[in-house]
Amino acid sequence: MMTVVAFENVTKDYRTGFRKKKTALKDFSLAVKEGEVFGFLGPNGAGKSTSIKILLNLIFPTSGVAEILGTSAGNAEVRRFVGYLPENPYFYDYLNPMELLQFAGKTSGMLAGDIRERTENLLQTVGLWKERKRPIRNYSKGMVQRTGLALALIHNPKIVILDEPMTGLDPIGRRQVIDLILKLKSEGKTIFFSSHILEDIERVCDRIGILVNGSLVRTLTVASEHLDKSLEDVFIEEVEKAGGIQQ
C-alpha cells in the first residue's frame, strides 16, 4: 500500500530565549499507509501537535523531511488532498458556517454547485444545518468544533488530519465524531489523528504511535499487539520507559 504521510528523521527545535532552545521532535520518522487510521498518543507537550503542524507547513522542521503523497509538505498544492481540524479551532467571529465552507470549497478548487451540495450534506451530518446562518461568535465550543470538522471535510480530502478532535465535545458530540471517523474509514480515507482519550483511539485506529518527549517510542497495531494488557498500561509503561515527561 502506498505511503501517504511520511516523516523522515524530523527534528524540530523551538527557540525559548537567547541561545536557549527546546527540542519538540527528535529524529522522528513515521510512515502512514493509504486507508489507514493512525492514532497519535502522547502526554501533553510530547510533540503531537508539532508533528501535525510540520505536516501542514504551519511550522518548518529544523532538519528532516515531511511528505504528503510523496510531495514535500511545503508544497501548497498537496494540501488540496488534506483536511485539517486544529486543536481548539477558532474561526472568523462575524461569519457563519455557510460563508466559511464556501471559502474553504473555493480555495480547494471546488465548483459552486458542488460546494452548495456538500455544504448542506456536511452541516446536516454535524448537526449544524438549522444554525447555519448564525455567526460563529454565538456558537458553543462544541458547535465550533463541529464547524471545524465540516471545514476539514468540505473538499472530500484523501487524508484527514485531526488534532484532538474530541476537545470540548459532550458525550453525544464525541459519539458523532467517532461515527464520522468510522464512516470516513469505511470510505477508504487515511486518517491521522491525535488524542489523549485512549478509549477513542483504541476504538477507531488501525495503528497507534506513542510519542514521548518528541520521540516515537512505539507503534503498535491495535488488533494484535497488546491483547494481554490494556492500552492505558502499555501507554504508561512506554512513558515511564522513556524516562517520564520532561518539561
Binding site: 504551519l58 494540501r79 488534506v82
Partner: peptide
C-alpha cells in the same frame, strides 16, 4: 487566535 490555521492549511501559499 490561530484563525490562520484554517486558511493556510488549505492549498493557499503564504504569499497568496
Amino acid at each position: 487566535k490561530r484563525t490562520i490555521y484554517m486558511v493556510i492549511s488549505r492549498p493557499i501559499s503564504r504569499s497568496q
